[in-house]
């Protein structure tokens, strides 16, 4: 990095960061998804780099960031930081960069969304919710309250972390992050935590009991108590969980279809008194 590159002010950089954190999804829509959110986050950078009278420069910069954009907003903040740094170089007169910035953006948004969605939606949210449900199921309001506070704190930290990686280390920094084992280790470890907690949830909250009682000459045979519980308590919820997972993951049954199946099967078996 030569010292000819014009740096934006700290205020502009902070504004860029917070605009993205708050407004990435403010105008979420089917045509550009986060496109206008991306453009909005670049506005403080553009204001800082281009004079008020430089209408052409501003319009060119704004138009190139109005395009379709979609990623996971937290991990994807790396792209915001990176683009801010690239805009500095473009405004300093680096040739050809204005044309490549869009392909850099679109090239990174997919891989970062993959990591981000796994971290946020497959791991962090279900994990924290499971703990919150464990605390709150009996009516303890600390369950939802702690979840709420913890999530916002974690999100701000993640935003800042990835923004700094993008701005300070550039696309090489992001590529390194994608290739190094660090993120994979976090995902693997968190996946193990998630699996353990899902197993506990299945045992705690999936309820399925056989109601069949067969009268015998020596008393009665209760299918649930004398058979299933003798093998392992809650073996039916375990079987149901694995079956539903298998149907959804391996057979491609959608969650909405699965929901309808369970309602229908539950209604039929429940009505005739088997469960």
């Amino acid at each position: 990095m030569s010292d000819e590159i014009r740096k934006v002010s700290k205020t502009a950089l902070n504004k860029c960061f917070w605009y993205w954190a708050f407004f990435a999804h403010a105008c979420y829509n089917y045509e550009r998804l986060q496109g206008t959110g991306f453009l909005h986050s670049m506005c403080p950078i553009i204001d800082d780099l281009y004079d008020k009278d430089d209408k052409e420069g501003r319009a060119a910069a704004m138009t190139r960031h109005a395009a379709f954009f979609n990623t996971e907003p937290r991990v994807g903040t790396a792209i915001i930081g990176l683009t801010a740094a690239m805009e500095e170089r473009i405004a300093s007169g680096e040739e050809g960069l204005a044309e490549t910035v869009t392909s850099v953006k679109t090239g990174l948004m997919g891989p970062l969304a993959g990591i981000g969605d796994t971290l946020m939606q497959a791991i962090l949210a279900p994990l924290l919710l499971s703990i919150a449900i464990g605390i709150g199921e009996g009516g303890n309001v600390m369950g939802p309250v702690l979840y709420f506070a913890a999530f916002i704190a974690i999100v701000i930290v993640l935003h800042r972390l990835f923004f700094n990686i993008g701005y300070n280390q550039g696309d090489e920094g992001i590529a390194q992050l994608l290739e190094s084992g660090a993120i994979n280790k976090v995902i693997v470890g968190a996946g193990i935590m998630g699996c353990t907690v899902m197993g506990a949830l299945a045992a705690n909250y999936v309820k399925l009991d056989a109601m069949v009682v067969i009268p015998l000459t020596t008393g009665e045979f209760n299918l649930q108590e004398n058979f299933f519980n003798a093998i392992m308590p809650r073996i039916l919820p375990l079987g149901l969980t694995l079956l539903v997972w298998w149907l959804m993951d391996k057979k491609g049954v959608s969650s909405t279809k699965m929901l309808v199946f369970i309602v229908v099967i539950g209604a039929v078996l429940g009505a005739i008194g088997i469960i």
């Binding site: 279900p126 699996c195 899902m198 949830l201 399925l208 919820p237 539903v244 997972w245 369970i262 309602v263």
Partner: peptide
């Protein structure tokens, strides 16, 4: 009682 299985299986 059975429906929580959906949320769990979806995460699995």
């Amino acid at each position: 009682g059975m429906l929580p299985v959906i949320g769990i299986a979806m995460n699995m």
